[in-house]
Computed example of a mutant assay.
Amino acid sequence: MTDDAPRKPLQQAVALAYDSGQPAPKVVAKGRGLVAEQIIHVAQEAGVAIHESKELVSLLMEVDLDQQIPPILYRTIAELLAWLYHIEAAQKSGLPLPPAPDTSIPLTEI
């Protein structure tokens, strides 16, 4: 018996962690399908902001676990971190949440 229903594409997720003493954020979790769903679920339960960018996730999936992000992604990830800090500040002060940054990576940088 065949299933002709359209299949949902495999979801991917990457979790980053950054401590102020580190030179760059590290990939602390990554996965596809059920693992990706679990990463997202854990982040949501912990109140961690989630940003969706298929292009960025695809690039980060190439980074080994516990490895720092490559220099080519520093600016993009820095913009995401700044956005997260603005979200936290807005939530504390009751201000509107800032719009998500554009995380597209110019082809000239890759």
Rank of each mutant, 00 (worst) to 15 (best):
D102N: 15
Y85I: 08
D66P: 04
L84D: 14
A46V: 07
P6V: 02
M61S: 11
V14S: 01
V27R: 00
Y74P: 00
K26D: 00
I69R: 00
I72H: 09
I39C: 01
P70F: 02
A29C: 06
I40L: 14
V63Y: 07
K54T: 15
L65D: 06
A36E: 04
G33K: 06
V42P: 06
H41R: 13
V42W: 10
A36R: 05
R7F: 03
D19E: 13
G47C: 01
A17V: 08
L81E: 04
A89L: 13
A89V: 08
G47W: 03
A82I: 15
E55M: 09
L95H: 15
E62P: 10
E62T: 13
E55D: 14
P98S: 12
V48Q: 12
K26S: 08
V57P: 01
P96I: 01
S104E: 13
H51A: 11
I77R: 07
Q11L: 13
I72W: 00
H86S: 13
P6Y: 04
M61N: 07
E55Q: 12
D19K: 11
A90T: 02
I87N: 01
H41M: 06
D102I: 11
V42N: 11
V28C: 03
L95Q: 14
Q67A: 14
A13P: 06
E79V: 01
I50L: 07
A29W: 06
Q67M: 10
V35I: 15
Q68C: 11
K8W: 04
P23I: 06
I87K: 03
G31S: 04
L97T: 05
D4S: 15
L81Y: 13
S20E: 15
A90I: 00
R32I: 12
G94V: 09
K26N: 03
D19Q: 14
E88F: 07
Y18V: 03
A24G: 06
G21V: 13
L73D: 05
I77L: 03
L16C: 06
A89N: 10
D19T: 11
P9Q: 08
E88M: 11
M61F: 07
G94W: 10
A49C: 12
R32S: 13
L16T: 08
D19R: 11
P101W: 03
H41N: 12
L84H: 14
P23F: 05
L97D: 02
P25C: 01
A29T: 07
H86Y: 07
I40F: 01
L73P: 02
L59G: 09
L95C: 06
P96W: 02
Q67E: 15
A89I: 11
S104N: 14
A36Y: 07
V48D: 09
